[in-house]
Design a protein around this nucleic acid. Structure first.
Lengths: 360, 360
DNA sequence: CGTCACAGTGAATCTAAAG
DNA sequence: GCTTTAGATTCACTGTGAC
């Protein structure tokens, strides 16, 4: 990694988010997950139909006097995060309708480039007791790169695998953090009011980091980000102001055993696999020089040159160039266009032949 | 109603949104649905894997010079809308991640009170062709009252009955506007690039208005809001700058017959089939990454990857692919082949685990 | 008339490595 | 930095035409 010299890796920094962020070197973390205070502005307490009181979020850290005050706070920590984020890093920010629009606006104004907004659909949300609104059944995460030209990382194949081999969508159905996963104190009271489910962080961290990379959480709370990062073989930096939360998180993290690296590595995408030039197939006699390639419908035939070029009428060049030329298309992936014709008449795609010799 | 004296009811006002809004009397409409330009900021063109080109939104009306320019425009029309909205009225605003955070921030800054953000989940979105992001499968609507103390209308019972007698949630699954509903010209070209589905407006209008009340759409486009309002026995006011759009909308509206009020409450609720990808079991810790699966006879063991892939010797891939590979069979249903082994030695079929979490 | 194969399409901020 | 080239990449649904 090369930049990790001064990084307090795999630690919880106890202190103010801004103070701690300022101690980190620039361009040093691969990903950030931030679950900032929600600015909920609840008035009075909410009472359930049967009389019980709803244990809502009314902690002091969650109250701001005004939108400008909240915006100033938001811009301050997002500015520091952008400094700390590597050029190719990405940030995730989660919020609900009370604050997420301020977060998104601030991200854009500070130069971040939004890649997706991702909806966490809660399978078991709290109902709306008064029947005055729709059940508030989701929260929104914003995924952004450092800027519009960033070459950010996205583990497309891993996300596709997670979703039964179809593209992962921007709406994720995941249950709330309940049961054994929810941290509770001796009295059975929940340690943190907004503990996020590990399944959510599993998908987030898997989507945009590789094993060994560094994930920063500037509002660590109960430590879900750090716990999942450790389990997935990533490094983490957690920042938490509240000492009770920090201690609970530390104990939780200590109990985690990382999974074997073979499990943490996701299936490499095709574009990350070693390349086999077409000329190699010619050299090895799989596609002999002088033989002919055809497209799927046998509309075009092309002759293979000893140097790995194709010829089809006037078109001469790589399998891609000639494929594009005969179709009069702007571009073409020759591997998926040209076929070898067997004497028995069956066709084999070049891409299949390539797969056979990859790794040999 | 009492305020309708000067209202141009059930008409399309052709002209600039701000000019037309200023002609309307204050506190005169019960609900507003606004689908403003998204400021998509598309650069070059996008080519599909098979070679086709995406017909993107490149209309002049969607181009703004900067975020401040877009914000100024947004604040101007939202200010006029607030003046025109009755005290007990509500507004819906729809957008995507490009603009919706600006919209929400402006709403809050102008004194509106957000009641819900509602996610329109598209059942058939366009995929992400380059595999560089999550499929952009939703848009966001913000529902807000005129201010924090508003006595707004919410037809809770109607929403509940629309949803099989459980509270309507904040995430709605509705298909894109395609097929016969999509307005097309003589050449078969779509009349408007972003026509909204009637099912979406059906739910919106039904949720917050009564028959006879007035719905305003300041960016009417192809007229979906007006068409649904008329069908549901509501009055409408449409504003549209583009004469072609306005004419198409007028023709569409003229062809509508209002439905009897009793019928307004029946909407085929699309049941969701609970499809659970194997990766979900991994994320949720039911089948931990790094653990092993075995077949019924314990002849093969496979390691579970964090991305939901299996590894068994050289075979890597989905539970189905690896199941087929080890058996040297053409195909295999991994759900019925692989088992989790308990510490006590008993086996549980994956399909049983899946059944447990289906729908949660 | 049914079935199947194939083409078309939808608010899209859509590449990465080598030279 | 730049330009050039290789080559990776799609889901759900609708409509049409062949058989």
């Amino acid at each position: 990694m090369g930049t990790g010299i001064d990084l307090p890796l795999d630690q919880v920094m106890v202190g103010d988010c801004l103070d701690m962020l300022r101690q980190l070197p620039p361009a040093s973390v691969h990903a950030i997950f931030a679950d900032p205070p929600y600015n909920l502005q609840l008035k009075g307490s909410l009472v359930r139909p049967e009389g019980g009181r709803v244990d809502g979020v009314d902690d002091a850290w969650d109250r701001f006097d005004s939108f400008p005050a909240y915006d100033a706070f938001t811009r301050a920590w997002l500015t520091e995060c952008r400094r700390v984020l590597r050029k190719d890093g990405t940030i995730w920010v989660i919020g609900a309708y009370h604050n997420v629009f301020r977060l998104g606006t601030a991200l854009q104004d500070l130069g971040y480039w939004i890649l997706n907004d991702v909806v966490w659909r809660k399978s078991n949300p709290m109902p709306n007791f008064r029947g005055r609104r729709f059940t508030n059944a989701h929260e929104t995460m914003i995924w952004a790169s450092r800027g519009p030209e960033s070459r950010y990382k996205f583990n497309y194949a891993a996300m596709k695998s997670l979703n039964d081999d179809v593209q992962m969508r921007s709406d994720w159905l995941i249950p709330l953090c309940t049961g054994a996963e929810r941290l509770r104190d001796e009295d059975g009271k929940k340690v943190h009011p907004t503990q996020k489910p590990e399944a959510l962080l599993h998908r987030v961290i898997l989507s945009c980091t590789s094993p060994g990379e560094v994930v920063l959480d500037p509002f660590m709370g109960s430590g879900t980000t750090a716990a999942v990062a450790k389990r997935l073989g990533r490094r983490f930096i957690g920042i938490e102001r509240d000492e009770t939360y920090a201690a609970a998180a530390q104990a939780r993290i200590d109990a985690i055993t990382p999974m074997p690296e073979s499990a943490a590595l996701s299936l490499p995408a095709k574009r990350e696999q070693p390349r086999v030039p077409f000329g190699t197939l010619v050299e090895r006699g799989l596609v002999p020089a002088g033989s002919r390639l055809v497209d799927r419908h046998r509309r075009w035939k092309a002759e293979v040159g000893a140097d790995g070029t194709l010829r089809c009428g006037k078109a001469v060049g790589s399998i891609h160039k000639v494929g594009a030329a005969v179709q009069e298309a702007p571009s073409c992936n020759g591997w998926l266009f040209w076929h070898v014709e067997h004497p028995n008449g069956s066709l084999r795609l070049l891409d299949e032949l390539r797969a056979e010799i990859a790794g040999s």
